[in-house]
């Protein structure tokens, strides 16, 4: 069982649309894992049945049990996040401002503050239209994605893949360059980088590749909307060459991606010509590189 992770650094490059297309082509052999939990959109193209839903907890939030509180105010003194305030002579904690550091609970003389596990969202396991399965999550408002949530989504996918003897886990990775994307990459067999030829696309590609390099994971790159700016496209290609990143494919700027999405479809379901054949080639190449990656050891 191999884990293929798709990341982009920048938003709006088409990462999710492409991941979903590969999911359709991989069909029953693939378990999908959506780790882009800040904007978990892949399910919109997958007709999930939300078979299993469970609450997800990450980090802690402090809570004052009023009955034992002596209103000494020590908790408010130590809190650096202005999360504790006095309302009608009672100290209360604003969950949105609480950072979960646990300092207040530690100093409370009557031990009346408890650290509750923080409910950050829900995790879903679904059967999807590919005939395979998908794991995704939805965060509550103001909740942060975390390495733990990403690891949990991937673990669930791994359990499904092992149980049902699937060949691949296909991960729609987290954005940015922080803890969630590190967790997305951790354990990957192959990384697909999706970029676009713009000033910010190249900039963000370079940043996120720094992480990939650190984990010694083999990577390939898709340049989406490649024909929008040929200078930037050339610049990206030079970067790929210098870094030894496999250039997987150039995809044209094409509004059919959006038209397909509007119908709740991926591009490979929507059109039967140019883009689909390009993506079929790309998917084959990705699978080949993923497996080759292992034989090399």
């Amino acid at each position: 069982m191999k884990e293929i992770v798709v990341i982009s650094g920048k938003g709006g490059t088409g990462k999710t649309s492409l991941t979903a297309s590969f999911g359709i082509m991989g069909a029953k052999d693939v378990v999908l894992a959506d780790c882009d939990v800040d904007a978990a959109d892949m399910h919109l193209l997958m007709q999930p049945d939300f078979e299993v839903a469970e609450d997800f907890y990450s980090g802690e939030v402090a809570y004052i049990n009023q009955s034992n509180c002596t209103s000494c105010g020590l908790c408010q003194d130590v809190c650096r996040f202005d999360a504790i305030s006095l309302h009608n002579e009672q100290y209360v904690i604003s969950p949105l401002d609480c950072e979960g550091c646990g300092y207040c609970a530690r100093v409370c003389p009557t031990e009346t503050i408890i650290n509750n596990d923080l409910l950050v969202g829900q995790l879903f396991v679904s059967n999807v239209k590919t005939g395979g399965q998908m794991v995704h999550a939805r965060l509550g408002i103001g909740a942060d994605n975390s390495g733990k949530l990403v690891a949990k989504v991937k673990d669930e996918a791994k359990v499904l893949a092992l149980k049902n003897k699937k060949d691949y886990i296909l991960v729609d990775g987290s954005p940015g360059v922080g803890c969630p994307v590190v967790s997305s990459l951790s354990g990957a067999s192959f990384v697909v980088l999706v970029t676009e030829p713009s000033v910010s696309g190249l900039h963000d590609l370079k940043r996120v590749y720094e992480l990939v390099k650190k984990f010694n994971i083999k990577a390939g790159c898709i340049i989406n909307k490649a024909d929008v700016n040929s200078d930037k496209q050339a610049e990206i290609k030079r970067f790929l060459m210098d870094e030894g990143i496999e250039h997987l494919i150039d995809l044209p700027y094409d509004e059919n991606f959006t038209k397909a999405m509007t119908l709740g479809q991926t591009i490979v379901e929507y059109e039967n010509q140019n883009l689909t054949s390009l993506l079929e080639q790309t998917w084959e190449k990705i699978k080949q590189l993923t497996n080759q990656n292992n034989r090399e050891k």
Partner: peptide, 8 residues
């Protein structure tokens, strides 16, 4: 450790 939100 696996269940730590950050800093695993």
């Amino acid at each position: 450790v696996k269940n730590e939100a950050h800093g695993a």
